Amino acid sequence: MDIRVFLLAISAITVGLVELVVGGILPVIAEDLQVSIATAGQLITIFALVYAIAGPVLLSLTAKIERKKLYLVTLSVFFLGNVFTYFSTTFAMMMTARILTAASAALVIVLSLTITARISKPHVRAKALGYIYMGISSSLVLGVPIGIVITNAFGWRTVFLGIAILTIGTLLLISKFFDKIPTGDVQPLREQLKALANKKIVFAHLATMFMLAGHYSVYAYFTPFLETTMNLSSSSISVFYFLFGIAAVAGGAFGGGLATRIGSQKSILIILGAFSISLFVLPYSTFSMPVFIIVMMIWGALSWALAPAQQDYIIQTDPVSSDIHQSFNNSALQVGIALGSGVGGIAFSHTGSVTSMPAVGGFIVIIAFVCAAISLSMAVHKKKKNNTAAQHVSERTH
């Protein structure tokens, strides 16, 4: 594997840390900035919203800028955003810093994906994308416990100072090991937006959104689920989160490897089907600790296994507009996280039982499976239509 792919994965880890790390240290931030925890929670919401919108918009606006230069400039803005966060003394300053880091993080991630797709050979592209998603998933699932440990030892501001320092290291590595990366064929913004009319891609984005929505309808409430079903203490729960995180990190690499071996289209359906089953089985595995850990880690691995195959499928389906579609798929992921958390909260308030959450998530993932199947069936139909047309041309020629 090209060493540059691993450097981009490291960059993805660095910028990914800043999103959910706030969740684990929210009470400390709220107390320091003298706001309620509910108000401080808006720091997560605003990040997700800006991230979802900024990715595709900034990618379009910067389409003519050489990729390495753009990457380094964006990382520099991300660095400044974290420094601003470190020095924030009011909630308004903190919100401004979150907007800055969200927009720059979104562009860094989508550039990491598009550059990886461009520098990787087609037969290992899905696997290479898997490493990027392994970086993203590791930052999202492991950032929370790491942030808590650092906050308890040195204070919450040190978390963002540490991310800023990591960003400097990433800047130096990218600057040293990457040559100039041309923009490639640049489409006007109007044409890129027209690409969103591609129904196959739209259903692929919906599959990503509903898959993450199903996942986060359970994962967002995993702590009360563990407390209720397994009677775990807070220290034991942190161990389970760590195990889940390891599985999720491995899942990105597993999904990329599977897509490389059997193809992206088959992988998408297999992963979504298995993921739905794992959610339905989860509450029935709590009778035994070892069984539950196995099911939980399968669930964790599958939660990030779809992304590499999905990205590779999008590139194959519409290579000309693949950059903008990868950006929108990443935005769909963020919308799915927000949607899942909301749906999970509504379901919990109506049922009053956390044991019902996995079934809710499982049904949402079934919707994702249907969306993926529709997208794939359209792709197969178009391929058959093109083959038929080519056959008719051949017959007329002879």
Rank of each mutant, 00 (worst) to 15 (best):
V370L: 03
A153T: 14
A213C: 13
H381F: 03
N329D: 02
A38I: 00
G300R: 06
L129P: 01
P145Y: 10
V291P: 00
L111R: 02
S234C: 15
S356H: 14
A103D: 03
S137D: 09
P224S: 09
V77H: 05
S36T: 11
A52K: 01
V21R: 11
K64I: 01
A12L: 12
L49I: 06
L113A: 13
N198K: 09
Q326L: 12
K68W: 01
F47C: 08
I99W: 01
M289Y: 09
I337C: 13
L7R: 00
T45F: 03
A102V: 07
A253S: 10
G340I: 04
K64C: 12
G352D: 05
S327A: 01
L333E: 05
V144K: 03
G252N: 07
K121M: 12
G345I: 10
L43C: 03
D318M: 04
N231A: 14
V149I: 15
P290T: 09
K180Q: 15
R125W: 08
S278Y: 00
S175T: 11
L272N: 08
T96D: 13
L193D: 02
L272W: 07
L196A: 03
G162Y: 12
S235D: 14
R157W: 13
S236A: 15
T317Y: 04
L279I: 05
N82L: 04
I315F: 12
E19G: 13
I366H: 03
S276T: 06
Q310L: 07
V281M: 01
L206T: 00
T89W: 10
V73D: 11
A307W: 07
P308Q: 02
L193R: 00
A63L: 11
T151P: 07
I109E: 10
G352I: 03
L100C: 05
